[in-house]
């Protein structure tokens, strides 16, 4: 299984750490809604087919990735950065521009 990291390109799955189901939504940390917390911790959609999941490129650039992977075929249809801005692909150029402005 290869995962195409937006930074590093296609890499073997051994470089990545699975961080689990990406469908879950963490309640507000101040929330006292026990049902919502229980659902967040314990309940899973567990689909047979496309699955939203979180992987970290722990043996590479260490970014967290949003991956859509088919649980029946292991085929990966989409990989994006967890943090929205990074997903647009201009993160590197924006950082460079900032550095150029300072100089």
């Amino acid at each position: 299984m290869l995962i195409t990291c937006p930074y590093c390109g296609p890499r073997d799955v051994i470089e990545f750490t699975y961080q689990g189901d990406g469908n879950r939504e963490r309640p507000d940390p101040a929330s006292q809604n026990f049902e919502a917390w229980n659902a967040y911790v314990y309940d899973r959609l567990n689909p047979a087919g496309d699955h939203n999941e979180i992987w970290q490129h722990s043996g590479g650039c260490r970014t967290h990735l949003k991956v859509v992977r088919n649980t029946l075929t292991h085929e990966i249809s989409s990989v994006a950065f967890m943090r929205g801005d990074h997903g647009r692909g201009d993160h590197g150029s924006a950082a460079r521009r900032k550095a150029e402005d300072k100089s």
Binding site: Y42, R44, L45, N46, P47, A48, T71
Partner: peptide, 19 residues
């Protein structure tokens, strides 16, 4: 391993199970 799939047929969307 097919528990999630079969339970979804019964209208139960989530289970404390991952396959």
């Amino acid at each position: 391993g097919s528990t999630g799939r079969v339970m979804q047929m019964a209208g139960i969307e989530t289970m404390p199970i991952e396959s």
